[in-house]
């Protein structure tokens, strides 16, 4: 077989092309953004669950909220400290975090997470859609 150089050459070209996104973006990574807390959120001091938990699990918590509200008709959330909240993305979460663009979108955009929450839920802070 004398095709060795073609095969190896072809493989090399393939690998280089395949790895394009990696070497093209090498060293250009934008720093991870930090979510900005609104005045209201700062004033409240704490969220429905501890910050660490919210940072890691907010999407799961929202999923559980949604199931409870829509499917089980239970709309009140009582956290481990016994504090009660009405489960509503639009009316509870966004009430404190009234800066969706700075608080939600910034990170989602950075991580390329395309959530469909806002197809239906209204960002009140924008006033009018």
């Amino acid at each position: 077989m004398n095709d060795k150089k073609y095969i190896l050459g072809g493989l090399l070209i393939f690998i280089v092309l395949f790895a394009f996104p990696f070497w093209f973006n090498l060293g250009k990574a934008a720093p991870a953004p930090k979510p900005v807390l609104s005045e209201k959120a700062k004033a409240a001091g704490k969220c429905v669950m501890p910050t660490e938990f919210m940072r890691a699990e907010h999407m799961k918590l929202l999923g559980i909220w949604r199931r409870s509200v829509v499917r089980h008709a239970k709309r009140e959330f009582i956290n481990p400290e016994g504090k009660q909240y009405t489960m509503s993305l639009q009316n509870t979460c966004l009430n404190c975090h009234d800066n969706k663009a700075q608080f939600c979108d910034k990170c989602h955009n950075y991580a390329s997470v395309d959530v469909y929450c806002w197809d239906c839920h209204i960002d009140k802070s924008k006033g009018e859609e």
Partner: peptide, 15 residues
């Protein structure tokens, strides 16, 4: 965090 330690509920949902 969701289920609570020692089987005790840490968070719950109500009407």
């Amino acid at each position: 965090a969701f289920a609570g330690e020692h089987g005790k509920s840490a968070m719950h949902f109500e009407k």
